[in-house]
């Protein structure tokens, strides 16, 4: 079951990266980043079936970091929304040159 699980991980990561590239809604882009993190988690669990339980411990850390990242990222999105009244990333061009 390890090879098809790695295939699932690859599919989810590619779909998530594609979503980050094509969507303009900041919240959906963020959701696609979560999808990429989950794809990595699937790969970690698959490899933990090869090399022991350490992979599952790493998944635990990835989940914690994802929770912290979601809290800070959504706070950033809220403060951007207060400024521009939109979450469409096409309007955020302050750092663009």
């Amino acid at each position: 079951m390890i090879e098809p699980t790695l295939a699932l991980s690859a599919f989810l990561f590619i779909i998530g990266t594609f979503g980050v590239l094509v969507r303009r809604n900041a919240i959906i882009m963020f959701l696609c980043i979560e999808l990429q993190l989950n794809a990595v988690n699937v790969a970690f669990v698959a490899f933990s079936n090869l090399w022991g339980i350490d992979g599952q411990v790493f998944v635990f850390f990835v989940m914690t970091v994802a929770a912290a990242e979601a809290a800070v990222g959504l706070a950033i999105i809220i403060s951007i929304f207060r400024h521009y009244q939109t979450v469409d990333v096409g309007n955020f061009n302050l750092l663009k040159w």
Partner: peptide, 18 residues
């Protein structure tokens, strides 16, 4: 998938936390 891969605790955490 986590349940099928013998990661039972992570399956529970996935539902509760994520």
């Amino acid at each position: 998938e986590f349940v099928l891969l013998e990661a039972h605790f992570l399956a529970a955490v996935q539902v509760i936390v994520y």
